[in-house]
Amino acid sequence: MNAHDTSGTEGDGSPVTVLRAPIVLEYEYSAGQSASRFLRAIAEGRLLGQRCPVDGRVYFPSRGSCPQHAVTFGDEVVELSDKGTIVTFSIVRVPSKNIPLELPYITVNVLLDGADTILMHVLDADLDDVHMGMRVQAVWKPREEWTTSTENILFFRPIDEPDADYDSYKEHI
């Protein structure tokens, strides 16, 4: 943590233009009440959403409260399908440290069946095939590798179902 060095040759009077001062900070995050329940379920291969007590909309993934109405969700959980519809997408050709996929890859906003919010994830499909309204399903890690982690879902993959009608998902773009 204390390592630092400077560029500019000593004694030659040239200005120091670079100073490296690495910063390492450790944080211990807690998932929170709602996310804990969601993570325990995903360790069993189940996707749990929560219902807003004001308008009944189903949030997935849930952060424990409704951002629109500022109310904490109750204990009611809604079990969701791992199938859904691509609402919109992008093909990414820029590397990112937290996405260990080969370029290019497809990011998708998926509306899971039974959910009223979108899930951002990645899609394993032919780049020329992907389109809005495409039906997809989650591909899971082998069951023995499941943990309390969202990484249990590797990616989504297209399934052989007819495209969803634009009107059925357009308000989620």
């Binding site: 929170g32 952060r63 904490t72």
Partner: peptide
């Protein structure tokens, strides 16, 4: 230490 609540979960009851 608030082990069970995230910031939003801490704030909501305060604002309510």
């Amino acid at each position: 230490r608030e082990p069970d609540r995230n910031e939003v979960e801490i704030l909501i009851p305060v604002l309510q």
